[in-house]
Amino acid sequence: MTNAPFPLFPHRHLLGIKGLSPLDIETLLDRADAAVAISRQKEKKTATLRGRTQINLFYEASTRTQSSFELAGKRLGADVMNMSVASSSTKKGETLLDTAITLNAMRPDILVIRHSAAGAAALLAQKVSCSVVNAGDGAHEHPTQALLDALTIRRAKGRIGGLTVAICGDILHSRVARSNIVLLNALGASVRVVAPSTLLPSGIDQMGVEVFTRMEEGLKGADIVMMLRLQRERMAGSLVPSVREYFRLYGLDAEKLKIARDDVLVMHPGPMNRGVEIASEIADGPQSLIQEQVEMGVAVRMAVMEALLDPRRNAEGETIGGEPA
């Protein structure tokens, strides 16, 4: 796959969706469409990033995101190294920045970081000389998830602008929700959030969404229903009284889904809590896009890394040939 037809991505890092223009986003989605084709070939390996080094630095365990990034790098021909930091130097008290400086000395071309603290990816980006991809920082952003969600929607519905998307569940702690709210607004969708008020962040009504606290109202006329995972430690009495009450009021089952449009499609970033936020019949049913999301994840991550390491740009992140970086 070649860079030629795609406009140059004007950022050195991908730290969040905030700060990306609609054109930046559309371009990444176009690149990802091409990457889907590659992943569906028998021969899946390309030479786009041959000789480049990708380090995955995961401070939080995440099987699916980490393997998605790993596979994306390998399909582009990069050398991929996984650092599960949860199990190594942090236990010896090394700080994020010291680890970053150490890794930087190994001269990677791209660092993929997942961390439990908001702003961790931005902090890292200040201290290393390579590109940084945020694979989730606390409750801040998870840009590749929002991109893969957008790609999934665009391929299923043919467009994003004009659609009504309902994001349901633990908005308060969700980086996925924040990235999706920004992205879907940028591309002209109308975004709703549906959750009990204890799971909504302060100021949510000023974040570019319509706020609902009842599924019966929030799902009315929805083209897409995006369910979020409810962390186990938040279920028992502190923010919601119980699992069974949560499932009754906010769990997506066939009955609630009937309120949405007939051609509604259902998404979930995974891993799912079946019987908590989503019923199995829906997760595995014909309206579910959950498998597609996983496939699109690899494609989007290929697109992002390829765009960041565009050979038209030199190692310092400056454009070769005078185009603005």
Partner: peptide
């Protein structure tokens, strides 16, 4: 607490 903290994902 407020909108700015919410966007930053900070408690």
């Amino acid at each position: 607490e407020g909108l700015f903290a919410s966007w930053l994902g900070l408690a």
